[in-house]
Structure formats: C-alpha cells, structure tokens
C-alpha cells in the first residue's frame, strides 16, 4: 500500500511540470508520463489513499467538489459584476 506521502508528492511534481521551460519539454513529458503511471498504479489496488479509513476521503473529496462548485459560481458572478461596474463607470465618464 502506498503511503500518504507518495500520493501528494506525485501531485506536486505534476503541478510543477505545468510551468516547465520549453527546452526541457520532451524529457519532462517523459517524466510526467512516468509520474502519471505511478499515480494510476497507486489508484488501482484496493487500498489507495481515497479508499483508506473506510473510504472517508472520497466523502471529503465530494465536499471539496461542492465547495469548488459554489466558489466557481460566485467567482463568475463577481467577474460579471465587475464588468457591469466598469460599464457604469464608463457611462459616467462619457456623460
């Protein structure tokens, strides 16, 4: 069974790959494949991280989805409101 550290470390590596330089792209892509492979392998056995302690972390992940959904909705609302505010301010300046 892979421990908690492995799971998060792999995720960290993948995130850092996104900001990589163009020159090293090829070798990093190979590395990414390798890490994805590790990540997928970590998910296949019965006892991965989300399945540990009675699968409670899959509930936690569900809560994260709900929070993310609400946050994205509010963020988009905020952006629309900002656009409207800008529009109103522009009207004031021209008139």
């Amino acid at each position: 069974m892979p421990n908690k550290g492995d799971f998060w470390e792999v995720n960290c590596y993948n995130n850092s790959l996104m900001y990589s330089h163009h020159t090293k792209q090829k070798s990093l892509a190979c590395l990414a494949l390798l890490f994805f492979h590790v990540l997928l392998q970590a998910q296949s056995p019965e006892n991965d991280f989300l399945r540990s302690t009675g699968k409670i972390y899959s509930v936690v992940a569900g809560i994260v989805i709900v929070f993310a959904g609400l946050a994205i909705y509010l963020w988009r609302l905020d952006r629309k409101l900002t656009k409207l505010e800008k529009h109103i301010n522009d009207e004031h300046e021209t008139s």
Binding site: L50, R51, K55, S58, V59, A61, G62, I65, V66, G69, L70, Y73
Partner: peptide, 18 residues
C-alpha cells in the same frame, strides 16, 4: 443547474470508489 452539475460530479466520484 449548478446544483445538478455538482450532484453529478459528487456522484461520479462516489461511484468510482463504490
């Protein structure tokens, strides 16, 4: 609609592990 999308997403994740 937002709640429906979140319902599908949480359900899909749960289905993966159940």
């Amino acid at each position: 609609i937002l709640f429906g999308i979140m319902g599908i997403a949480t359900g899909s994740l749960w289905a993966r592990y159940t």
